[in-house]
């Protein structure tokens, strides 16, 4: 069943006009803007969200990423981590923040304070290298939070 859902979502994405700049499985995938020129700085170029190409991506960040091992089968949590790798890393290291709270909720964690403390204490184990993938991060989190 899970596979079927996953396949259908994948299909949905490939058929929609989804502007895919970054599938975001790993760290360091934030949007890059080049604002070096003085003119650009003066005008602080922004589209203000009023300009764009239509995206209809009710999609998950896990598309195109490896899925975590079977014991963590939570699509929402998977795609959340894939979409927010850097922000989550910062919140885990700080021991607090909206993204780590969100992850706790998505994983149905009851004792959030302990969860956050455990994750913070084991930051180096969770974000084990700069090549770490979102699937590994989830697996590491589950292993650490036990």
């Amino acid at each position: 069943m899970k596979k079927a859902i996953f396949a259908s979502i994948a299909l949905l994405v490939s058929t929609s006009t989804f502007a895919n700049e970054n599938t975001g499985c790993g760290l360091g995938n934030q949007v890059i803007q080049n604002q070096d020129s003085v003119l650009k700085q003066v005008l602080a170029v922004t589209t203000n969200g009023t300009i764009g190409n239509q995206t209809f991506g009710i999609t998950s960040g896990t598309v195109g990423c490896t899925k975590p091992a079977a014991f963590v089968s939570n699509d929402k949590a998977n795609s959340f981590v894939a979409d927010n790798m850097d922000t989550l890393a910062m919140d885990i290291s700080n021991g607090k923040g909206e993204s780590v709270d969100t992850l706790a909720t998505l994983l149905n964690v009851e004792d959030k304070a302990t969860f956050k403390a455990k994750l913070q204490n084991n930051f180096a184990k969770i974000y084990s290298s700069s090549d770490v993938t979102s699937a590994q991060v989830i697996e590491n989190i589950v292993a650490v939070a036990g």
Binding site: L27, G28, Q30, V31, I32, Q33, N34, Q35, D36, D86, A89, M90, I92, S93, N94, G95, A117, Q120, N121, F123, A124, Y127, S129, S130
Partner: peptide
């Protein structure tokens, strides 16, 4: 994000800083 630093360099410093921060509790 302002493209002033390469991704590889960014990731190295990023994890160094976060590791140090996490140790402070």
């Amino acid at each position: 994000s302002d493209a002033k630093i390469a991704k590889k360099e960014y990731l190295g410093h990023f994890l160094t800083l976060l590791n140090a921060r996490s140790e402070l509790g």
